[in-house]
Amino acid sequence: MNLATFRAGCDLDTGTSETPTVIVPQSLRDATSPLGKGGGQTPGNASGKRSSYDMELCASGHLPPGMARNVLTVAGRELRDAVRAKWFLLYTLAFAGLGLAISFVSASATGGSGLASFGRTTAGMINLVLLVVPLMALTAGAGAIASDRERGMLQYLLAQPVSRSEVYLGKYVGLAFALLACIFLGLGVCAGVLAWTGIGTKPGAVLWLTGLSFGLALGMLSVGMLISSLSRRASVAVGTAVFVWLTLVFVSDLGLMAGAMALRLRIEQLFWLSLVNPLQVFKMWSLHSADASLDVLGPAGLYATEEYGRGLNAIFAAGMLAWVIVPLAIGVLVMNRRAAA
């Protein structure tokens, strides 16, 4: 259809009829629908005066899709958008690049002696994950709601038959998958290099580390999206996310160290306080599950191993789960309370 057709029906008479006369081009009326579905009668349309066009586009009944379906729809869109975004490419490249560097440095350091154990390689990977993954997940989450809100997209999206929880969770799931891809690719490259250079880090340990990294990413994404749902502007949200990242990565540790030395905290107090930080939970869980046990971490780690032993897994899992669920739940609440625009 070209614009000329529209113009043909466009010259409205300035006449005097009570309801404006509408001239619908014949081509519009007769167009057959590719849907080929019969339209359901709608409550608001008892008169049956719809055009064939209306009938054909009609959905079956007027029941909105279920929650799971909407979450998946939004998630799919978010994922597609994320993997096309610059940040995704940037983080994946940075992650894989730094991982490569660490792997090669480890390879040259061990001189290909091929000794299998927990070592600087694993430590380096843990360090890398601790730096990159929270930053990535926090900023990805921080952009999710606030930038849409700022650009009016959120309002448009919410004007559709979806609930706010669905949009929120959908975005969460979509971004989670994007982060999953990023982490898998980054650590996959590391593992590939390690395999190629013949450093025997155990494959199970790498997979486990990957899983834990994803867990950490889920928690940080949850926090990032909470920040986003509370922020009016995307720039503020991202700024806050970076601040939170700095706090979790450096400030809280340094604070805890200084506090522990100044206040002469007991070992168990130090251990439990450190567990407040999800990065520490990740780190300790990785160490705990890797070759080395937690006693690598000195007296506090020894205390943890001796006091809780196998229960540590449950403690760490609870810590990580809390960081996923609590901010997510608060975020959904905030989303449901606040105006869309």
Partner: peptide, 8 residues
Amino acid sequence: SGLCGAGR
């Protein structure tokens, strides 16, 4: 005006 038609 063409699309919305009567009844909507």
